[in-house]
Design a protein around this nucleic acid. Structure first.
Length: 493
RNA sequence: GGUUCUGUGGCCGAGGGGCUAGGCAGAGGUCUGCAAAACCUCCUACACCGGUUCGAAUCCGGUCGGAACCUCCA
């Protein structure tokens, strides 16, 4: 990569509430951790948006020359049913309901998750660790926090002592919470809780006799708490301090706040330099919720099998649609919005496909470098994909004008434009045209050429009934003819 | 109820004190035998009510929607 186009990157850091210049701890290396899915259910479309957003971050950082280690975990244990930490392990519950082994549930939904990610063209992370694979490390971290005197044991469970922690460190910085207000706002748990303080959270939970997922620990059989795995796995693979931590907005509090507390308690260092949070996805202006039926699964979009959709939309179209909004804004998905995105996506893809067809000229009639630079400027500004795409559409217009001979480029400018546009569209935005037939079309091509020639002859003979019949019937078969000055071309719809 | 964010043209969305993206849809035009595609032109908006300012969609306050989290509940 020759990042001549790139200057500095600015990232909105949730911690400061401002865009900050990105300076990795150990350039050219970048450590990035993103909270992955809990695999007790199908991936939620909102999760997909988060992972697509961070996929672009991952891709762009690599594109401009960083060596990124991207860690995204799989939560396959430990998430409890409610924040009172009194609930049943979600995975264990699902297993009981479906009469499956917990790991069977985990396996099923992990595979499903990977399949969906692949369809969205989300790159696999560098490391995808699981919570159950790091029980030993989690126990070690709990010991450390106990040694620091910042956790306490009650009946075989360990809780983090937020009040004690706050004597030395702030808690609530990331989410902007005022702890006194939180305490005032939280209801006493009527003596049900083992916690000394409602804000305390579990590091380790004693397993009830019926609890299936359980591990040996110094405090008896149990399972790790809600927030611990991310602290443990980010530390193990990225170090005690690393560059970027991402996740959905909904994880800001308490999950990420707890992560900071755990790491700081154990290592005396703030773990993360840049916190990034992706915003939520709404459906038809309302939050998605199973209970109200306002939901949409990825596979339902791909198949069109959902009452909110008039037709199926390809994964690339959905990805493109999501990238047309900034990751920090809420995004509303609807059939109408997807249909509009699909048209725009095709326009972009058609222009990219046109690039190899363009002919170089004596001189350039516009500034390619400036046009490309604008795309980079947008991405450098907190990964602003909607502006990047808007600038790409300016380039699309120019490509189309070149195609009709109204603009021209020298061979070197054309090569530059071609390389950059392809890199930005395919490598950075991760957009591949999956809306057209991609199988081998060489034979089909020959057949269509015959039909095009026959139609040309009919047109020359002014037999328009025949020429239109050929065109219209091809269109019905999903083949669209386009008459240009240079001759007739076609696209497979 | 509390904390935080948010409300942009027919739709989706950037931007964020004066220069006012982009996509889709719509209208007109060029091209075409007619279409399609492409290109050109047009439609020029910032929830509401006050305030600050020479000037506000952009800042401040209030009202009303929406969202996230806390709480509650499953």
């Amino acid at each position: 990569m020759k990042p001549g186009e790139t200057k500095e990157i600015y990232i909105y850091n949730t911690l400061s509430g401002e865009k900050e210049k990105f300076e990795p701890l150990n350039p050219p290396f970048v450590g990035m951790y993103v909270c992955g899915p809990t695999v007790y259910n199908d991936v939620h479309l909102g999760n997909c948006r988060t992972f697509i957003s961070f996929d672009v971050v991952f891709r762009y950082l690599q594109h401009i020359g960083y060596k990124v280690r991207y860690v995204r975990n799989i939560t396959d244990a430990g998430h409890l049913e409610n924040d009172a930490d009194e609930g049943e392990d979600k995975i264990a519950k699902k297993a009981r309901l479906e009469q499956l082994e917990p790991m069977e549930v985990v396996q099923r939904y992990t595979v499903g998750f990977h399949r969906i990610m692949e369809r969205f063209n989300v790159l696999p992370p560098s490391i995808e660790p699981t919570a159950t694979g790091h029980i030993v490390e989690q126990i070690q971290m709990i010991k450390k926090i106990l040694d620091e005197g910042l956790a306490y044991e009650v009946n075989g469970s360990i809780y983090f002592d937020v009040k004690k922690y706050m004597e030395k460190e702030p808690y609530g910085e990331l989410s902007g919470r005022n702890v006194d207000e939180l305490i005032a706002g939280s209801r006493e748990l009527e003596g049900q809780s083992e916690k000394r303080n409602p804000l305390d959270f579990a590091l380790w939970k004693k397993a009830s006799p019926t609890h299936i997922m359980r591990w040996e620990s110094p405090w008896g059989e149990g399972f790790p708490g809600w927030h611990l795995e991310c602290s443990v796995m980010s530390t193990k693979y990225l170090g005690e301090v690393f560059d970027i931590h991402g996740g959905g907005m909904d994880l800001k509090f308490p999950h990420h706040e707890c992560e900071i507390a755990q790491c700081t308690a154990a290592h005396h260092k703030k773990p993360v330099r840049y916190w990034m949070h992706a915003n939520m996805l709404t459906l038809n202006g309302k939050r998605m919720s199973k209970s109200t039926g306002n939901t949409l699964l990825p596979q339902e979009i791909f198949s069109g099998q959902n009452p909110f959709l008039s037709k199926p939309y390809s994964p690339a179209v959905v990805r493109f649609f999501m990238l047309q909004a900034h990751y920090r804004s809420t995004l509303d998905i609807s059939d109408e919005a997807l249909a509009a995105a699909e048209k725009g996506f095709r326009r972009l893809m058609d222009a990219v496909a046109l690039l190899p067809e363009l002919k170089a000229a004596e001189k350039s009639t516009f500034d390619v470098r400036a046009a490309v630079q604008k795309v980079y400027d947008a991405l450098n500004d907190d990964f602003n994909t909607p502006i990047a795409i808007a600038e790409l559409f300016e380039i699309v217009r120019i490509i189309n004008l070149m195609n009709t001979g109204q603009e021209s480029l020298t061979a070197s400018d054309l090569l530059y434009l071609s390389e950059r546009v392809k890199a930005l569209v395919h490598d950075v935005l991760g957009l591949e045209d999956d809306t057209r037939a991609t199988t081998d079309t060489s034979k089909l091509d020959a057949v269509i050429q015959i039909l095009i020639e026959m139609r040309q002859k009919a047109r020359a003979d002014r037999n328009f009934a025949l020429s239109d019949q050929i065109r219209d019937q091809l269109l019905k078969a999903g083949i669209q003819l386009k008459d240009t000055k240079e001759g007739t071309t076609y696209t497979l719809l």
